[in-house]
Computed example of a mutant assay.
Amino acid sequence: MAHKYVYRFNEGDKDMKALLGGKGANLAEMTVIGLPVPPGFTITTEVCIHYADRGEYQDGVEAQVDDALASLEHDTGKRFGDPADPLLLSVRSGARASMPGMMDTVLNLGLNDTTIQGLIAQTDNPRFAYDCYRRFVTMYGDVVMGLKPEGDEGDPFEEQLEAMKRERGATLDTDLTAGDLKELTARFKALVKERTGKDFPDDPKAQLWGAISAVFGSWNNDRAVAYRRLYDIPDTWGTAVNIQTMVYGNTGEESGTGVGFTRNPASGENVFYGEFLVNAQGEDVVAGVRTPRPVAELEGVFPEAYAQLLEVQQTLEHELRDMQDFEFTIERGRLYMLQTRNGKRT
């Protein structure tokens, strides 16, 4: 039997952190105990170590990724790269020990000038679709294509965004129209071409493998190496890569995203604690672009999702036997759990 390098979320559990990383093992555990986790799969830490040593993948890895992707298509009823109803993915790191913010993430993967039309047709929401597209080009351009600030400049994508807001008299990102975001996406792609000499990739499969390799590669970026030295994390552990169906907190006022703790991390009080944003994707909560609201206000905005989160709070602590720090998205009123990890007390 061929060695297994790829595990679907329903094939793992919380005790497989060495192989699936902390995030992958906990996604598997949440899936197995019946929490609402978007379907996905994990490429193991063994692949990371081999890739770091040799710059290539073991025989069988690509075929196993293809099989897991086909399973995702079956589960979701969507096809990767389909111009009518595209499957879109997140690609995230996940080491055995939590290393928050040290490695890389790509969201909304699978978008191009053709699949964006399918997303618009499926959602009847062009502004949402182009908001996803400009975010994808930003993340992929940075993480995979290496478009970083040069010298003393700020983030080049952020500078383009701020310039667009000034041109349009917009205060917030959410003030920009679908047309503005479409134009911004084109400007981002032109910036990638100008600075890297390369065209932004349109082929979803090429996008996927570019992101997988970049996330594995981020195990050895400067900040990740420094973090491992600080916390005595072995280089030989590697990171897993988690590939998951996208869910969206930025479809409009009926959606949102947030972070939560199963209890107050400062006092230990057994109370649901955290913050959220309406009409946002996960990175917005921690990026400081907008001011998050305390999670206690979530009950008045999304009462059904809030009630479900209170149940999740109890389930996570019961199953994982520790305070949990988790991320969630509410897409059109429906709750999804994106990750959980043991929380750090302050």
Rank of each mutant, 00 (worst) to 15 (best):
H3V: 12
A63I: 13
T105V: 15
T31G: 02
P38R: 11
Y248L: 04
D152K: 11
S71G: 11
T185M: 04
A287V: 08
F157I: 10
Y51E: 08
L338H: 13
E253V: 03
G81F: 06
V144K: 06
N342E: 08
T245F: 06
L161E: 01
F326S: 11
G260H: 05
E56C: 14
L310F: 00
I233N: 00
L147P: 03
G55K: 06
M323P: 01
D325C: 07
A214D: 04
F188H: 15
L335V: 08
V301W: 00
V106D: 09
K205D: 10
T340W: 03
K148D: 08
V37N: 05
G169T: 11
S255M: 06
F200L: 12
V285L: 10
L161I: 08
A305R: 09
N10V: 05
V286W: 06
R321I: 03
A211I: 09
A266Q: 13
E194M: 07
A211W: 10
E269M: 12
R168K: 15
V144H: 05
T177N: 12
T239Q: 07
L72P: 13
N279Q: 09
E194K: 14
G34Q: 07
A214Y: 03
E283A: 14
Y306F: 14
E183W: 07
E331Y: 02
V215N: 02
